[in-house]
Design a protein around this nucleic acid. Structure first.
Length: 571
DNA sequence: GCCGTTTTCGGCCCGACTGTTTTCAGTCG
């Protein structure tokens, strides 16, 4: 976990450099390095020991020295110095949409504002509009930005939550090799798109060593509460974690209880009461007798229903479905036969076509669609028509070398603000697969942007709509598209909608997937990977698909290559 | 601060949009 600590510090350095008005490229270098380190697929400590830190792109000699300094001393002098020059709390203001470093400099210099609370007070007092370069509209935009920010804060993205939970889990298991069971519960176990805090359930006859291991771990910043069987800590990652220790015979009940959701549990308790039971984390009570099912499967069976996977426990009708035995058989990671949305070095990805094919084959995939950006997306080095055709040719050539695997020549074509596509139909007809996506003009009104995406859906060459609502979790709201209409038209045209597996997106979200499935919409679970490491994000997409009750038959990339080819021809 | 090179400096994704201006700065993606 040194990766993240260093990544956090580099991010802080970058922000402070920006606020101080230093060379923006220097700040960008720190930010890039932080991003690279944050991806958890590297271990800085290991690389440092081997003297290979500079092999990480974005780490040069200066940053290598800083990483080594931190690993050795636990401190970064450079950051300490920066913190003396400018209040680090100013960084908070960067989180407000509409505020950048220049605005921060102005309000800091003129009003001495250093945090969100002071900013809000100043905005309410209408002091901001008096500052140079800021008018009434900007002041109002800042007010709105503050409201949005409050709603968003303090929830983790799934990959962060899994990584931190894994860290905590392995620490306790290392400390207590005899521990019968330790399991993640809560919203993380349900695969919710963002996670507030982490819940752990442990099974042990003697709870105190488990609680001790938890509360005295090196990552604990603060012990919020600690009793005989329960504890709450604040970690140094700024994430709260709860632990409950139960007797081994009650593990299934405890796990069920603390997995939630609240709505699911309330409904479940209602059912139990109707049947003369009372359920809690301490077993099933009936006529003064307490029974403890050994597994969750048995628990649900005792309540007269089939097992409900955690991802479905949201109080959205799963209990009724489980009682009448019509619960879906949710999609599994192993059902996925290929990824239909990845980028190569031809646009803004980092890998060659060969590397992509190799990585896909290592994951047991039967096919992989290379879908680089189209020409209008300059920022991502979108491909010109000539480049697209050249790439197609190269892909066709590579395919000759495979017997049990296929690269599909695809494109992620821009849906332009007027609803037209970035390439002519003649070119799109050449492609094996076409994803159409929105990457610009997010602020169009509901009618305009809905019409815009619908016209892409209706293009006969478009197979999939990429990240259909355009949201970035915690950073950007979805554009104002009418998803109900989108789902209806997708069902009509047979165009698939993407379930983008990137933990930043998870777009479409679970509820829309559920809604679409009812209408007969097909989906594609894709990673949108720009680097082969991110092909592993597939599991987050599968979680969301499961949460949307999607089964294998709802997902086009569970098809065999031959079936997929048929589907692409027909649609 | 990184990195590649017409190789030890000079560029670093570039254009749209908005608001505050009066010709441009700031923010965003």
């Amino acid at each position: 976990m040194n990766n993240w600590e260093i990544a956090h510090m580099f991010d802080e350095i970058a922000d402070l450099l920006d606020i101080l008005g230093e060379n923006p490229y220097k700040a960008r270098a720190y930010r890039r390095a932080a991003h690279k380190l944050g991806n958890a697929y590297l271990d800085v400590e290991e690389l440092a020991e081997e003297g290979r830190l500079q092999e990480i792109p974005g780490i040069g000699s200066a940053l290598e020295k800083k990483i080594e300094e931190y690993l050795k001393t636990g401190e970064l002098k450079y950051l300490t110095q920066l913190r003396k020059k400018v209040p680090t709390s100013l960084r908070q203001l960067l989180l407000i949409p509409g505020i950048g470093v220049k605005t921060i400099q102005i309000i800091y210099q003129h009003l001495g504002i250093t945090n969100l609370q002071d900013l809000e007070v100043a905005a309410r007092k209408k002091l901001l509009r008096e500052l140079p370069g800021i008018g009434v509209k900007t002041e109002q935009a800042i007010m709105r930005g503050l409201e949005v920010h409050v709603l968003r804060r303090r929830r983790m993205l799934l990959h962060h939550a899994f990584a931190i939970a894994g860290e905590i889990e392995s620490h306790i298991k290392d400390k207590l090799p005899g521990l019968a069971r330790l399991q993640i519960a809560g919203s993380l176990r349900r695969g919710k798109e963002t996670v507030g805090d982490l819940d752990f359930i442990a099974a042990a006859d003697n709870p105190s060593p488990v609680v001790d291991a938890f509360t005295t771990a090196p990552f604990v910043n603060d012990v919020v509460a600690a009793g005989e069987v329960k504890a709450t800590i604040m970690t140094k990652w700024g994430v709260q974690a709860d632990l409950l220790v139960v007797k081994p015979e009650f593990i299934a009940n405890a796990l069920q209880h603390f997995t939630g959701s609240k709505e699911h549990n309330i409904a479940l308790r209602g059912i139990a009461r109707e049947q003369g039971f009372k359920i809690s984390e301490h077993g099933i009570h009936c006529d003064g007798q307490v029974t403890a099912p050994a597994t969750e499967e048995e628990l649900y069976r005792q309540l007269g229903m089939s097992y409900i996977p955690p991802e479905l426990r949201e109080g959205r009708g799963e209990i009724e479905a489980a009682q009448s035995g019509v619960l879906p058989n949710p999609l599994e990671v192993d059902d996925i036969k290929g990824d239909l949305h990845v980028h190569s070095e031809w646009s803004d990805g980092v890998n060659t076509l060969e590397e992509l094919a190799q990585s896909a084959r290592e994951r047991g995939y039967r096919y992989l669609a290379v879908t680089d950006h189209s020409r209008s997306l300059y920022v991502a080095s979108g491909l010109t028509e000539e480049r697209v055709l050249k790439q197609c040719k190269e892909i066709r050539h590579l395919n000759k070398g495979f017997t049990d695997f296929h690269l599909l020549a695809g494109i992620e074509v821009e849906i332009l603000p007027d609803g037209s596509l970035d390439f002519e139909d003649e070119l799109l007809a050449e492609m094996d697969i076409v994803i159409a996506s929105v990457h610009s003009g997010f602020n169009q009104d509901r009618e305009t942007i809905t019409r815009r995406v619908i016209s892409a859906l209706q293009n006969e060459h478009v197979d999939i709509i990429g990240h259909p609502t355009g949201r970035l979790l915690g950073r950007r709201d979805p554009y104002d598209i009418d998803v109900d209409v989108l789902l209806e038209v997708a069902a009509e045209t047979g165009t698939a909608l993407e379930i983008n597996a990137s933990p930043d997106r998870l777009d479409l979200n679970d509820e829309y997937v559920h809604q679409g499935k009812e209408l007969g919409v097909r989906f594609a679970v894709n990673t949108d990977a720009h680097d082969v490491y991110y092909l592993d994000d597939m599991r987050y997409g599968v979680l969301q698909a499961r949460r949307g009750w999607a089964e294998r038959n709802d997902i086009i990339n569970t098809l065999t290559f031959e079936q997929l080819s048929d589907w692409l021809q027909r649609n």
